[in-house]
Amino acid sequence: MPHEVKAVVAREKKAPVSVETIIVPDPGPGEAVVAIQACGVCHTDLHYREGGINDDYPFLLGHEAAGIVEEVGAGVTGLEPGDFVILNWRAVCGQCRACNRGRPQYCFNTHNATQKMTLTDGTELSPALGIGAFAEKTLVAAGQCTKVDPAAGAAVAGLLGCGVMAGIGAAINTGGVTRGDSVAVFGCGGVGDAAIAGARLAGAEKIIAVDLSDRKLEWARDFGATHTVNSGSTDPIEAIRELTGGNGADVVIDAVGRPETYEQAFYARDLAGTVVLVGVPTPEMRIDLPLLDVFGRGGALKSSWYGDCLPSRDFPMLINLYLQGRLDLGRFVTEKVGLNDVEEAFAKMHRGDVLRSVVVF
């Protein structure tokens, strides 16, 4: 029988969100209904509200979530009611050219639930990143559920569903940070600090955090930054070069996603170094670099989509590191809020007052 639940909906572009009753259908073949326990407030949700993703309003917001499987549809294997799961937006198909080449982390045909959740008047909702988890319950493809140890707790586990995984993966999976590397990270919000934590896990020798906010730079030190640069008062390119013997960093991660920061990242890397873009740009942004510099500096310019993660591999591993005390996921949680507090959480995030507000059900 379909479920009536409370959820956060963005009805119009740039309009405040509202808490409304929605209809969650029973799971069909290959689907699951998950009772959400916690969901992080991610900047991507604000992008949806502002029209920065597409115009498929109304949106059911929320995607950085963990909870308990309540029901599964026909044909679902390896997942059953009662399982504690992190929701992901990379449910690999197993059949596309990337999957067939043994690279499922690049799956080109990730899937979501077939059925639609709706408002009570029947209006179909567009769930953020195919999840829609600012809701008491949500409907997803079974492959979007990754089982992990419930001892972690939903408020921290859910953060791996997007921002923290994106940052850690940008450093380890995309950037290939390894022991003894020098790493610079532009932007010390949730994703940037996760990249710093990932670089520390990988054994980087020098981790340089760059931001305009001294407060955020202090947060970055908590996650493992060995040096900080306030780019409002110091040229970050020169500072990074000075800190790396005049060479530039081996890996530079742009967790902001603006042309200015990308250009700084490009020139702050060592010859044959790697630039990783994990911050999300807006559609109108453009970058203009001398092609000769692109050629002459060598190395790699990479984009990191979801930290190039494979949820079935990476989520349980990172949860185990958390439970071992080697990855402080709890440090990302600035506050726990209710479903009615999402709009204010957006404002706090925009002001840089929080790393993560987490909606707890």
Rank of each mutant, 00 (worst) to 15 (best):
residue 2 P to A: 10
residue 4 E to A: 11
residue 5 V to C: 06
residue 7 A to C: 01
residue 10 A to G: 04
residue 14 K to G: 01
residue 18 S to K: 15
residue 19 V to R: 08
residue 19 V to Q: 07
residue 19 V to W: 09
residue 20 E to M: 06
residue 20 E to G: 05
residue 21 T to R: 13
residue 25 P to D: 00
residue 25 P to S: 05
residue 31 E to H: 00
residue 32 A to H: 05
residue 32 A to T: 06
residue 33 V to S: 00
residue 36 I to S: 07
residue 39 C to Y: 02
residue 40 G to W: 02
residue 40 G to H: 01
residue 44 T to G: 02
residue 47 H to E: 03
residue 50 E to R: 11
residue 53 I to A: 05
residue 55 D to W: 03
residue 56 D to R: 15
residue 56 D to T: 14
residue 57 Y to D: 04
residue 62 G to Q: 11
residue 62 G to Y: 11
residue 63 H to W: 10
residue 64 E to C: 13
residue 69 V to K: 13
residue 75 G to E: 00
residue 77 T to W: 04
residue 90 R to M: 07
residue 91 A to G: 02
residue 92 V to H: 03
residue 93 C to P: 01
residue 94 G to P: 05
residue 97 R to Y: 11
residue 98 A to H: 14
residue 101 R to S: 15
residue 106 Y to C: 02
residue 109 N to E: 15
residue 114 T to C: 01
residue 119 L to Q: 05
residue 122 G to I: 01
residue 123 T to V: 02
residue 131 I to N: 11
residue 133 A to I: 09
residue 137 K to W: 10
residue 139 L to W: 02
residue 140 V to L: 07
residue 150 P to D: 05
residue 155 A to Q: 10
residue 156 V to N: 07
residue 158 G to V: 02
residue 161 G to E: 07
residue 165 M to L: 15
residue 167 G to D: 00
residue 173 N to P: 03
residue 173 N to K: 11
residue 173 N to E: 01
residue 175 G to I: 09
residue 179 R to C: 12
residue 182 S to N: 12
residue 183 V to M: 12
residue 185 V to P: 12
residue 186 F to Y: 15
residue 188 C to V: 14
residue 196 I to R: 11
residue 198 G to N: 01
residue 198 G to L: 01
residue 198 G to R: 01
residue 199 A to E: 04
residue 199 A to F: 02
residue 205 E to P: 09
residue 205 E to W: 11
residue 206 K to P: 08
residue 207 I to V: 13
residue 209 A to E: 00
residue 212 L to D: 03
residue 214 D to E: 15
residue 218 E to Q: 14
residue 222 D to N: 14
residue 222 D to A: 15
residue 226 T to P: 12
residue 229 V to K: 13
residue 235 D to P: 08
residue 237 I to E: 13
residue 239 A to E: 13
residue 241 R to V: 04
residue 243 L to V: 13
residue 246 G to C: 11
residue 248 G to W: 08
residue 252 V to F: 00
residue 255 A to V: 06
residue 257 G to V: 01
residue 262 Y to T: 11
residue 262 Y to F: 15
residue 262 Y to A: 09
residue 265 A to P: 02
residue 266 F to S: 04
residue 268 A to T: 03
residue 270 D to S: 14
residue 272 A to P: 05
residue 275 V to T: 15
residue 281 P to F: 01
residue 283 P to N: 07
residue 285 M to H: 12
residue 289 L to E: 00
residue 296 G to R: 00
residue 302 K to S: 10
residue 306 Y to T: 05
residue 306 Y to H: 12
residue 317 M to I: 03
residue 318 L to W: 12
residue 320 N to H: 14
residue 323 L to S: 08
residue 323 L to G: 10
residue 326 R to F: 10
residue 328 D to V: 07
residue 329 L to N: 06
residue 331 R to I: 01
residue 338 G to N: 08
residue 339 L to E: 09
residue 342 V to P: 07
residue 344 E to A: 14
residue 345 A to P: 01
residue 346 F to N: 06
residue 347 A to S: 14
residue 354 V to S: 02
residue 358 V to L: 04
residue 361 F to C: 13
